[in-house]
Write a protein that binds this DNA or RNA. Structure first.
Lengths: 195, 195
DNA sequence: AAGACTTGCAACATCGATGACGCATGTTCT
DNA sequence: AGAACATGCGTCATCGATGTTGCAAGTCTT
């Protein structure tokens, strides 16, 4: 559907519209997965027919949306260099980057059993990088050797998801949130001397 | 809609059907919030018309579903005596009880901005009890004095939600899960000596 | 067993969402 | 400026989901 080299350079006009629709779609659908095309169009500031012109069907929009959101998510992870940076640093960077991007992506990531080929691949890649990062964290001694890495990853996702529910408005707030997520992930919320 | 003393004792027949529909509704809608009445009816093993006979409209079903799930949730919390039991014990008990009940209630709790009067009241009550429990945990020294109680509660919810994604089949598995949730909540997943 | 109630089935009506056009009016690119 | 393209708007067709009703067969209560 979307070859690496775009076959036709879209007109500036069109690209803006497509972006607006995708962003609005993410926004609206995350709030209500059963939202209508009209609601999405309205949120995007375009006519309903325009949405249909750009995306043949509702399903096509959903797929494109998943691909788009996944792409942005992937970029956020990549930018943290999780493979090469010191694992503790990478963990923080990934957290901050993802929190910046994820302003209500709960839809495109969670509620989407997208069976599109490309999306699944990128998604799996992100998952693998995340898993790899946790392995490095364990090997670096940040996590104990007997850590259940699957549980660790899921807790991490859950914390990020929760933290992302309040959108940070400034960079300071973003860093504050990321710090909180990492701290909670590693040390929990109890008194460190307990148990 | 549902006075404390039920005006007419339902026939055994009817009650079974209603329960089946509610359970199926919870199950199906948590998997797909946009599921049709037919899918719910099918999952409940009844005809679609029967669903409409018991619940006037789709909205009525959703509302009843919210009320029902909230009720079960409330019972699970109550049974742990969060106000009187030692806070650490209560935390564990609440966790275990909720995990037992919540086999895919992600729908009725999260995706439901139900504005029904009774539901909202019970929901608020549960929230208050949870908040109160965290206050008691803090006062008991399990949590540090400067704990952000709102963040603590949200992390707790998120962890339970995550843990509930894999339904425990035995009591042992249930306790194992509850332990894991409480441990993670208090100590995180990092090495305890770190930082 | 008899009456009251419930369920399944089939048929029907309705309504909103989806999707497709054509046309007049902007926008963009060259 | 001029060609090419995108958009908004109104219109129309279609389809699936919702909700209703009548009737025959089954289930529960007493």
């Amino acid at each position: 559907m979307a070859p690496p080299a775009s076959p036709k350079p879209l007109r500036a006009d069109t690209e803006r519209t497509v972006r607006a629709i995708l962003e609005a779609g993410e926004q609206v659908l995350s709030a209500n997965p059963a939202a209508t095309m009209e609601q999405i169009a309205e949120a995007a500031g375009v006519a309903r027919t325009t949405v249909h012109r750009r995306f043949a069907s509702r399903e096509a929009l959903i797929t494109a949306l998943a691909a788009w959101a996944t792409q942005r998510f992937h970029e956020a992870v990549e930018a943290a260099r999780p493979q090469t940076a010191p694992p503790a640093v990478a963990l923080y960077q990934v957290t901050a980057n993802v929190l910046r991007v994820k302003t209500g992506w709960g839809f495109a990531m969670g509620a989407l059993p997208t069976d599109a080929p490309e999306v699944a691949r990128v998604h799996a890649d992100v998952l693998a990088q995340c898993a790899q990062l946790f392995v490095r964290l364990r090997d670096a001694g940040v996590l104990p050797p007997d850590t259940d890495l699957d549980w660790a990853r899921r807790v991490y996702y859950a914390l990020i998801h929760e933290a992302a529910s309040q959108a940070p408005d400034t960079d300071a707030a973003l860093d504050s949130l990321a710090t909180r997520v990492v701290e909670t992930l590693l040390h929990g919320i109890g008194t460190s001397t307990a148990n």
